[in-house]
Write a protein that binds this DNA or RNA. Structure first.
Lengths: 228, 228
DNA sequence: TAAAGCCAGATTTTCGAAAATATTGCATCA
DNA sequence: TGATGCAATATTTTCGAAAATCTGGCTTTA
């Protein structure tokens, strides 16, 4: 691992995590202290993150964390529905037994962590929270992994990163709770996929993301109202 | 303009142009000479290009130009059909008079350069060639510019860059000629779009890109056969 | 002969200083 | 007072040297 790669991954995780607030300037001197590396790896990492839209740069004014908004969130959610809906259809058409097996496995792994966190009434620690996010990401990735298009997978990953920032923020603020049974939605998507019903599966996936979008919008508007 | 930005744009243009062959390693010392800048702006530019998939990097082994293949080309072409087809539908639904005016203007500008180059039997100079590519890109960008989704536009741009590398290579080798009337295809897309017929327009766009894909495949296979 | 170890040269990666540029606070002037 | 210019400071950007790592060829060894 090069320092450049390491600091890229750390910065990426920290931005998604909300350690740096949206729109906050990222001062090189401070980052240098924080991550214990020189300018070069930092600037390389920031240039890469720029391509993922996690940071934006202004000429001679350095980098800042990109901002969040209801409009951007909906664009990301709707694009995700569009891209992953198609990728899921293709996966259902092309996926073999290994794909099915990996899909079932990733759903199961997600169920386990969901159940464990559901039982515990205590505060959820960061590690568990990270694992939940990871398992969730892996389940959705498994659904579309057999689509056969590197570009669709690339787009889906970018959109997942973007929406992950909103999800993390929403679950952190925790003032609102979903009333829905997310686990049941996942299960329904899985079952439609396994019986190779592309229309049903992509429809359920659409509903799933759309419901998430509505939840995120409520949280975002709540935060804005609270702040003013 | 920072040096980093300048060298990024130059490198990008030169890779698309085929100045560096696919899969060729990009040695920093050589690039330093060639572009007259130090390591830092070069590495920053290369890190950004990595995000666009124009270069790939291997740990401690620097950067190389990403490679081209028939499979990758078809993935890019099909993804383009998918993404731009939807973006065109949305543009047709949302576009206002200004959008229509700009669209007609960009088609006209494309027609002019096509006619000029069609008349001249002489060798096409680099500037004219670049202008043709630019006008072509701008026409296709104008079609989808009113789609209202920053993400779809972002994806379309990435895919255009990717396919541009293949187009440039194909038109350079020039051993094969299209038998089709590309200008007529553009005109048909424009007319369907202006009469707000989304099904017809996106169907024609699909056919247009698919025909281009078939042309590119012939050229690619011809090159491989020629090389062996 | 083939495999492993090692050295020299080539190359990438990282650092901190220097140059270029932006920002802030203060003084000056109309 | 309010705008403008200037100096001091903060910050980004760039450079070239140094450190780390890889590559290819040579030698040694079994």
């Amino acid at each position: 691992m090069t320092l450049s790669n390491t600091v890229y991954e750390k910065l990426r995780a920290d931005i998604i995590d909300g350690l740096f607030a949206p729109h906050q300037p990222l001062r090189l001197e401070q980052l240098k202290q924080q991550y214990g590396v020189g300018f070069s790896p930092l600037r390389e990492a920031l240039n890469r993150l720029q391509g993922e839209r996690l940071v934006v740069s202004a000429l001679q004014r350095g980098f800042r964390v990109s901002s969040l908004s209801v409009e951007e969130m909906w664009d990301a959610v709707n694009s995700r529905i569009f891209v992953e809906g198609e990728a899921l259809r293709r996966s259902i058409g092309l996926g073999d037994d290994d794909w099915e097996a990996a899909l079932v496995a990733s759903f199961h792994a997600l169920s386990i962590i969901v159940k464990r966190l559901g039982q515990a009434d205590r505060e959820i620690d960061k590690d568990s929270f990270d694992e939940l996010e990871r398992r969730h990401r892996e389940f959705h990735a498994a659904l579309i992994s057999a689509c056969g298009s590197a570009w669709l997978l690339d787009f889906a990953e970018k959109l997942n990163t973007e929406t992950e920032r909103y999800r993390v923020m929403a679950l952190r603020s925790a003032t609102l709770r979903h009333e829905r049974d997310v686990e049941a939605e996942h299960k329904a998507i899985l079952e439609a996929t396994l019986r190779r019903d592309a229309d049903a599966a992509s429809g359920l996936l659409r509903d799933h993301y759309h419901a998430t979008g509505q939840f995120l919008e409520r949280v975002l508007r709540d935060r804005v109202a609270r702040a003013s």
